[in-house]
Every structure is written in structure tokens, then in C-alpha cells.
């Protein structure tokens, strides 16, 4: 193995990449199948308000982001459900308000925020141990909640009306699902940053979806894909001296499009040989 793995920052980076893959693999599947990509983007961007709050209060910005992001997930969820604003309008408004709050908070904070850029675009090479611990705990919370409510989340994602009639506390579980998105955003902030989070929430799940129609297998495959993307992107960014977060996203996106291309080639070939197409 290359000597670079002996450095502590590199070990941290690998751990952060794997922890991020677990969270985005599991929750990303729900984001994709329940089609809440835009609302998740809103939650991710609103988390910037929490980063700002962290600077203002002099606490770990990621911790600030955690509280703020869960609160804004609940806020966006309730506003889109209970008010008469069209959902995408409400999301757009709260998305920008969260970011605006972040900027105000940072402006009010004494001194200036030197590593602001790394929260926006991620820097997997500078993840401190305390953040790794937080990511580990959040992964644990996410896994536990999904194990407990797997059945309900499946009903809710597939058919909300039926799930309400069947007795699932639909609105509360929907809000819980948005909180899981919020926690995942927090896990991912250090790795790819607020602005790029949405790519890791969608790409591994979208890739996994092409390979299976079983939700559990889809989660497993998405975790695997996420791990390959984060570690591959990390390696490439180290090799080429590029920004790590952006490299991870571009590696993921390229892989996804390549997989679409391969699927298409296979379909064409199957057609040429007169075989039935099979893309399950």
C-alpha cells in the first residue's frame, strides 16, 4: 500500500468517505424513490444557517449545522404539507432563507471564518476526530431508525394515500424521513460540502436502482457505489491535486452516465441477437 495511507489525515479521509457512503447509500435510496430530491437540496442548503450559527456561538459548526438542519427539515416539511404554498415554491424560499441566515450569522460573528469554503464545497482531507465521531454516531442513528421503520418508510414512499388508510402515521414519518435527510446532510458536509451534498444523495441510489428492484439490495449497492466514488474521487484528487469534494462528485456523475451508456449498449446488443431485453 502506498505510504500516503500512513498519514493520519489520510486515514481520517478514508473513514469519512466510508461513513458518508453508508449514510448517503441508505437515505439516498429514499430520496430517489420518494422523489424528494428538491426538498433535500433545500434542507442541505438551509444547513448553511447552522454553520453560521456555529461560528456565531463559537461551537463546532457541524454541531450547529446538525441542530439547525433538523429544525429546517421539520420547518420545510410542515410548510410544504400544511400551507397552501406550492411545494417547490416553499422549498425555494426556505432554501434561500437558510443560506441568508448563515451569511448574517457569520457577519455577526467576531473575526472572520477562515474555513468557510470547506463547509460549502467540502474538504475530506481536514476532517477532525471529533467530526468523525459525530459522523459515526449519526450513521448509527440513521441505521437504527431505518431498521425500526423500514416497513413504514416503504409504504409511505410507495403510496402515501394507502399508507394513511392502513394506519401509518404518515405525516410524522414523512417528517422523520426528512430528519434522516438532514442528518445525512450533516454527515456529508465535511466530505463534499453543502452545495455538493445533493449529488451524493442521488447518484449512488440512482446507479443502484438500475441493478435491482429490491429496496434493501438497492441500499447495499448504493453504499458500495458511494464508497467507490468517495474513495476513488479522493485518490484521484490526491493524484491530480484537485479539490476533493468536486472530484468525488465528478467521478460519481461520470460513473452514472457511463452506466446508462453500458445499459443502452447491452439493450441494443440484446435486440440485435433477438434476445428478450432484461434490465431488472
Amino acid at each position: 500500500m502506498p505510504t500516503v495511507l500512513q498519514y493520519e489525515f489520510m486515514q481520517h479521509a478514508l473513514a469519512a468517505g466510508l461513513l458518508a457512503a453508508i449514510a448517503c447509500g441508505i437515505v439516498g435510496v429514499y430520496v430517489v424513490v420518494k422523489k424528494v430530491v428538491f426538498i433535500s437540496g433545500g434542507i442541505a442548503h438551509a444547513s448553511f444557517g447552522g454553520i453560521g450559527l456555529g461560528f456565531l456561538l463559537g461551537i463546532n459548526p457541524v454541531l450547529g449545522a446538525m441542530v439547525f438542519t433538523v429544525a429546517s427539515a421539520l420547518g420545510i416539511g410542515l410548510v410544504t404539507r400544511r400551507t397552501r404554498l406550492p411545494e417547490d415554491t416553499a422549498i425555494g424560499i426556505l432554501w434561500a432563507m437558510g443560506m441568508a441566515l448563515g451569511i448574517i450569522f457569520i457577519g455577526l460573528a467576531p473575526g472572520y471564518a477562515p474555513d468557510l469554503f470547506s463547509y460549502l464545497f467540502g474538504n475530506i482531507l481536514t476532517v477532525p476526530t471529533s467530526d468523525l465521531m459525530l459522523m459515526l454516531i449519526l450513521d448509527g442513528v440513521i441505521i437504527t431508525l431505518v431498521l425500526l421503520f423500514y416497513k413504514e418508510f416503504l409504504l409511505l414512499s410507495f403510496d402515501e394515500e394507502f399508507s394513511t388508510v392502513a394506519g401509518v402515521p404518515t405525516e410524522r414519518l414523512y417528517l422523520l424521513l426528512l430528519c434522516l435527510v438532514a442528518l445525512t446532510v450533516v454527515v456529508l458536509i465535511r466530505v463534499v460540502g453543502i452545495i455538493l451534498v445533493i449529488a451524493l444523495l442521488t447518484i449512488p441510489a440512482a446507479l443502484a436502482r438500475q441493478l435491482t428492484h429490491d429496496l434493501k439490495k438497492m441500499m447495499g449497492l448504493a453504499i458500495l457505489a458511494g464508497a467507490v466514488f468517495t474513495l476513488g474521487g479522493l485518490w484521484l484528487s490526491y493524484l491530480l491535486d484537485l479539490a476533493s469534494g468536486a472530484t468525488i462528485i465528478l467521478v460519481s456523475g461520470t460513473a452514472l452516465f457511463a452506466s446508462f451508456g453500458i445499459a443502452r449498449l447491452r439493450r441494443n446488443r440484446a435486440r440485435e441477437y433477438g434476445q428478450p431485453t432484461n434490465i431488472s
Partner: peptide, 11 residues
């Protein structure tokens, strides 16, 4: 939606 016929009925 990634779900089998059986899992739909199980709902």
C-alpha cells in the same frame, strides 16, 4: 418503484 408484487400485497 423498486418493489415486487409480493411486497406490494404485503403492505
Amino acid at each position: 418503484f423498486p418493489i415486487s408484487v409480493f411486497d406490494v400485497v404485503l403492505m
